[in-house]
């Protein structure tokens, strides 16, 4: 590996570490959140360095973007007193740091031999790619080989949404929309739909797919909602419910149909894999987009009604 690659990796790594330490140690909660968003973006860069463009996209959209929005939204709701309260550096900061360091060292011993080993699944995926019905291996793993994981993950998202629904309404604090933001979002929102659709479409052959697309769509919707350009998305609308639940339902139905037709639970009949996966992805994207939108900006009342 050449020196400038080392320089790049070293700088990225150091930066990430420094940011992480700063996130935990900085006094103001607000700065901590902003630093955490920067941390997420930096991680996306690292994923790209490590040859994982799918993840870079997902991290940028989900990890940094949506988590950041969630954190800021939460920050907006906590009281002044709570915001001002600083983390005191009490007696156990020292021992905690020492302990974490020792644990890190132990874990380094564990990871030391790993780079020289390899995985049995890589050749297995390569073998079966032809039968998977899609051209991009990550999508193949997500929707074919380990479709059950993905289905459960959709359920996790649904469950998180359901869980938020249970909470009693908290005080809404919606600031007035900023005029410039309104203007920009009119431009950005259609763009996000466009890019989302493109990501979804490309997902079968190249990096991208339902989650990235869903996150982008959600980002667009959130922008519109924040600027007041989108009406409230209440749970009481049948279509909202259908959108949110559609992903899981279609996925489950196709899985059961596969079992019924003898291709195994969550298996696709020969020749049908491509179209079915696309179908699932479309529904999953819509479902993810709606759920994330409601999760991030849905006022509790909208979510609960």
């Amino acid at each position: 590996m050449s020196l400038h690659e080392w320089m790049l990796d070293g700088t990225l790594g150091l930066l990430v570490l420094i940011l992480a330490v700063a996130v935990l140690h900085v006094r103001s909660l607000y700065i901590s959140i902003v630093l955490f968003i920067a941390f997420g973006l930096l991680l996306a860069l690292i994923w790209a360095r490590l040859g994982a463009p799918d993840l870079a996209l997902a991290e940028a959209a989900i990890g940094a973007g949506l988590t950041g929005t969630l954190l800021l939204a939460a920050y907006g709701r906590v009281s002044e007193r709570r915001r001002k309260a600083e983390e005191p550096l009490d007696w156990h900061a020292g021992p905690a740091l020492l302990l974490s360091l020792i644990i890190a060292v132990i874990l380094m011993r564990a990871v030391w031999p790993l780079p020289d080993l390899d995985s049995a699944l890589v050749p297995a995926v390569a073998d079966q790619m032809a039968q998977s019905g899609v051209g991009h291996p990550v999508t193949a793993v997500l929707l074919s080989f380990r479709a059950w994981d993905t289905l459960l993950e959709l359920l996790v998202l649904l469950l998180a949404f359901m869980a938020v629904r249970q909470l009693l309404p908290s005080l809404p604090r919606q600031p007035e929309a900023w005029p410039l933001l309104q203007a920009w979002s009119r431009l950005l929102a259609p763009l996000s739909v466009l890019i989302g659709g493109y990501l979804l479409w490309r997902g079968s052959a190249d990096p991208g797919g339902a989650f990235q697309a869903g996150a982008l769509l959600a980002a667009g919707a959130i922008l519109l909602r924040l600027t007041g350009l989108l009406p409230a998305l209440g749970w009481h609308h049948f279509w909202i419910r259908a959108l949110i639940l559609g992903g899981c339902m279609v996925f489950l139905a196709i899985g059961v149909a596969g079992y019924w037709l003898g291709t195994g639970f969550l298996g696709y009949a020969d020749g049908w894999a491509g179209p079915l996966i696309l179908l699932i992805e479309v529904f999953a994207t819509l479902s993810i987009a709606t759920t994330l939108t409601l999760l991030v900006i849905g006022e509790t009342r909208e979510v609960r009604e």
Partner: peptide, 23 residues
């Protein structure tokens, strides 16, 4: 070639993480 299984698992993990974080 980067291991697609791990990448898929991380995508799943990210979604799980954000769901739980939101809640």
């Amino acid at each position: 070639d980067p291991d697609p299984v791990m990448h898929a698992l991380v995508v799943t993990g990210l979604v799980v993480a954000i769901s739980a974080t939101a809640f």
